[in-house]
Amino acid sequence: MTVIEAGGGWLVVDGDATLAGPFSTNAEAWRAVDRLEGSPISPAEKRADWIASKILSAGLAPTRVETKPKSKKGKRQAKRMKRAAAKAPKWLRTGAAATFDPQGNRAYREWQLGTFGAASPVRRVDPAEYLKGKA
């Protein structure tokens, strides 16, 4: 693999085949050669690549839609509920958090299917058929 200068920039070539490019600078082209050959890169660059791959693989962040109470009474009630929730005992808060369903439309937890052991017949349940039967 080598780098050559062509009309609009620098190209990474191997024999007659163009592998990458065009790059605006010679340094960018040689960096591409290093990546293609699997040569070690600096720790900072490894870290940046790792972070970028995690961000890109995660997809878009879910958007939160908050409804604001319009009336004075609604604002007061929301504030009172938050205050009361903060004063609740720890065992109640953890239990409520474990069973709270923010979307309010899941009657059961799909992720719990098949968690009863290797020999369990539940492991052989097709989730699509199960959901079709529940509807």
Rank of each mutant, 00 (worst) to 15 (best):
S57C: 06
S120V: 05
A6V: 06
A44C: 07
A44N: 03
E37H: 08
I51C: 10
R83K: 09
P22W: 11
S120R: 09
T99W: 15
D126V: 02
G59Y: 06
K79Y: 03
G7A: 10
D126S: 15
A29D: 12
L19M: 06
D16R: 15
S57T: 14
R80P: 00
R35M: 14
V125F: 09
F116I: 00
T25M: 01
A17E: 07
N26K: 08
A52R: 10
V3F: 09
S53E: 06
Y130V: 00
P40S: 07
A32E: 15
V12R: 06
I41L: 08
V12N: 06
R93P: 01
R106S: 00
A96P: 01
A20H: 12
A84Y: 05
M1R: 01
L36P: 04
W50L: 13
A58G: 05
L11F: 03
A86E: 13
A44H: 03
W10Q: 00
G114D: 05
G15Y: 06
L36T: 05
A88H: 11
N26Q: 12
L11M: 01
L113T: 11
D16P: 02
Y130Q: 04
K134P: 03
A27N: 05
Q77L: 05
D34H: 05
S53C: 04
V125M: 12
A98H: 13
A98W: 13
G74L: 06
T94V: 08
A96I: 01
E5T: 01
G15E: 03
R109F: 13
D101T: 03
A86L: 06
L92T: 12
K132I: 04
A32S: 15
D126R: 12
K132A: 08
S120P: 11
D16T: 07
K75R: 08
W50S: 14
P69F: 14
L56E: 14
P40D: 02
W91A: 09
A88N: 09
